[in-house]
Design a binder for these strands. Sequence first.
DNA 1: TTACGTGCAAAGGCTTTGCAGTCGG
DNA 2: CCGACTGCAAAGCCTTTGCACGTAA
Lengths: 164, 164
Amino acid sequence: MPRPTPDEAAALAERFRRLLRDRRLPVTRQRLAVAAEVFRAEDHPSIVDLQRRLRARGEAIGTATLYRTLDLLVESGLVRRHDFGKGFNRFETAAASAAPPHEHFVCQRCGRVAEFTNDRLERMLRMTADEQRFQYHAHRIEVHGLCAECRGRDFGPLGDAGAS
Amino acid sequence: MPRPTPDEAAALAERFRRLLRDRRLPVTRQRLAVAAEVFRAEDHPSIVDLQRRLRARGEAIGTATLYRTLDLLVESGLVRRHDFGKGFNRFETAAASAAPPHEHFVCQRCGRVAEFTNDRLERMLRMTADEQRFQYHAHRIEVHGLCAECRGRDFGPLGDAGAS
DNA sequence: TTACGTGCAAAGGCTTTGCAGTCGG
DNA sequence: CCGACTGCAAAGCCTTTGCACGTAA
């Protein structure tokens, strides 16, 4: 979870500025605010989460701008976009530098997302793809279930039964 | 790919009927038609695919009914729902009997979906979940890339860069 | 100054819901 | 007959687009 250390975030922000300048794109207050908010996040915020947090900070960014800026950040490789199958995207800071690709636990109860890594998993996937003459580009691994907090309590039946 | 053998489909249909009777739910022409269409499919059709195929067969099923019937089939465990992150669901017949859970290759070019299985992968995931005190319910593994057909041709850059 | 960004609101794509009419058991 | 289903259309969500106005460089 400790994705963005205090000043790592600052470094990322600087990287974003440079990136914009290099592309000869305007460095606007909104773009910086959105980027900062994502870099600051320790979780996997959705668009709405980000918008709410920004508003709380006094930055009322328009929805369209938010989407467009996030596209920019994703293209730039500074941010990752996830689709956990709930109908909307979630975002997180991409590994500051050569971050190990990581997988996700998604709690079906509270929606919380935790992470884990497993090199062997990835190697195995690449090999399997190769065997089937499939050219590997990327992968996604999600484990759905109950997080430590939620597994204690007894609720009614799950509303979600989604993922394969 | 050879998911539903000729008469396996018939068996599944029968199972669905029984299931409806047991639940005291009406066995309607529409429900049977939708179920049959999914059981017959050799691919991972979307809602629209199914609707088109049914219409071609002379069965004009309403969108709402289609969604509701698919929910029913998924709840029953006869059909699996997948969300490959394109904003809409795709379906497939669930293993006739204790089918090995399987993973997917998704071609970023043509959208085709191929499958593979790997017991070790699943075991590894369960173990990892356990280590993190996460209660495993289900998982999803997708490999994104280019299928054998598409990797030959040279197109422009990919429009998709999605999955983590 | 000028190209690009921003915000609002409208439009889109997929899915869900409300409701009157219909039908299975 | 009654409860559940069906189909249509309206409504909901999330995301994208169009456009007049604003702003970084």
